[in-house]
Amino acid sequence: MNLPSTVPTEAYLVLSAILFGIGAMGVMLRKSALTMFMSVELMLNAVNLSFVAFARHFGRLDGQIIVFFVMAVAAAEVAVGLAIIVDIFRSRRSVDIDDVNWLRG
């Protein structure tokens, strides 16, 4: 069995797809808003991985720059999202999304 010297881009794409799928499964299966949040982070990271893989594949830096922006947006998203979760917890004493089925607070 001879291994290629460098990892092909396709391998990274497949790994990225698997991790994205696991993240999507987490969003669909979990009932805790916090864990769903972490699953979304996993999906974002899986997409970042394919961005960087394509950046190497095409020999361009643009993919890496986009990942940089995705990280900045993810940081902003986590700050606001966790604030919303804390707010929900204050009014309902729970972060279970099954308890959050009303639009009014």
Partner: peptide, 9 residues
Amino acid sequence: AVVFAVVLA
């Protein structure tokens, strides 16, 4: 999720 991952892969 599995179908999704398989299609993407």
